[in-house]
Write a protein that binds this DNA or RNA. Structure first.
Length: 288
DNA sequence: AATCTAAGCAACCGCTCCCTG
DNA sequence: CCAGGGAGCGGTTGCTTAGAT
């Protein structure tokens, strides 16, 4: 299977985006909605008489990581941090999946935050050989958090199983946190605002749209948002429905996650969930 | 004030997945 | 069923900026 030639095309611009390019992209998406990225460079010529000389990948990335409305920027809260750590233990380096639990953060943001902050933090806190989620995918090629202690000699079977148990416990904790956060978290409290913004967004664009590009960008940037955020709060299952740009990725993981969640939840309910069963957990708990 | 270094982050690259014909 | 192509994901790079010397 050959790679997409779009990014190799000559004449395609690379590097940091300019405000003008952002406006072009936002204007395009306001008219067409996100998706069909391949058509963006062409359609911006047709629609706006100005071509956006960026490849489809670049457009998608710019939109999802920066322009997409509802994105929260700035430092991560302790709650978010905690959630990321737990989800990383549960899912491994599947940043897109983790990002579905933090609708206002992008996968890229989370990934960067993990690599620049959390990894170090955990390494400092947790003694060698007990580092949760460290290089979780490097050995198994999958998201096996229990195999995350890969930088050490093979673990005896019994011990390995104990650690697996420990990770299951972590996963449960993460799930509970994720759910409880949705009830108390700013995300939830801002649902109304987001929904209102979404309605604004859904209004037909004014004919004078292009006369005030700055406003257009701002309105728009609070918009889609919404689509993603408002539909995505609380329940992972409903999360995917509104946001076309994350729909596909969520679709990929939705079923497994739902199964996993159901399983974890059922188990937690049945067992009433108990104290950590492994020193590892104590270590990670001590982080907070 | 100038230079060096490290941290943070935006963007790119290359791979895989999945849809469509 | 298969091949092609678009979309998405995770890893990595490289630029910018802040802090240290």
């Amino acid at each position: 299977m050959g790679r997409s030639p779009c990014c190799d095309k000559e004449g395609m611009k690379k590097g940091p985006w300019t405000p003008e390019e952002d406006l072009l992209l936002v204007s395009y998406i306001q008219g067409h909605g996100p998706g069909n990225w391949k058509a963006v460079p062409i359609n911006t010529v047709v629609m706006l008489a100005v071509g956006l000389m960026r490849c489809s990948k670049s457009c998608r990335l710019r939109w999802t990581n920066y322009l997409r409305p509802g994105i929260k920027r700035g430092s991560f809260t302790e709650q978010e941090e905690k959630l990321i750590i737990h989800l990383q233990a549960l899912l491994g380096n599947r940043w897109a999946a983790i990002a579905t639990y933090l609708p206002e953060r992008t996968d890229n943001d989370i990934k960067n935050y993990w690599n620049t902050h959390l990894k170090k933090k955990l390494q400092r806190k947790i003694p060698k050989g007990h580092q949760l989620g460290e290089e979780a995918t490097s050995v198994s090629g999958g998201h096996d958090a229990s195999l995350s202690m890969d930088c050490q000699p093979p673990i005896p079977k019994g011990q390995w199983e104990r650690r697996l148990q420990a990770d299951i416990h972590l996963a449960k904790q993460a799930l509970r946190d994720a759910i409880s956060l949705s009830n108390t978290h700013p995300y939830a409290s801002s649902t109304e605002n987001i929904a209102r913004l979404l309605q604004e967004w859904m209004k037909p664009p004014p004919s004078t749209k292009r006369t005030d590009p700055a406003n257009s960008a701002v309105d728009c940037s609070t918009s889609t948002a919404a689509a993603a955020a408002s539909s995505s709060l609380l329940m992972p299952e409903t999360r995917a429905s509104g946001a076309s740009e994350i729909k596909a990725s969520v679709g990929k993981i939705q079923t497994p996650l739902s199964i996993l969640e159901t399983w974890l939840l059922n188990e937690s309910m049945e067992q009433g969930d108990t104290a950590p069963m492994d020193p590892i957990l104590d270590d990670s708990a001590a982080l907070f």
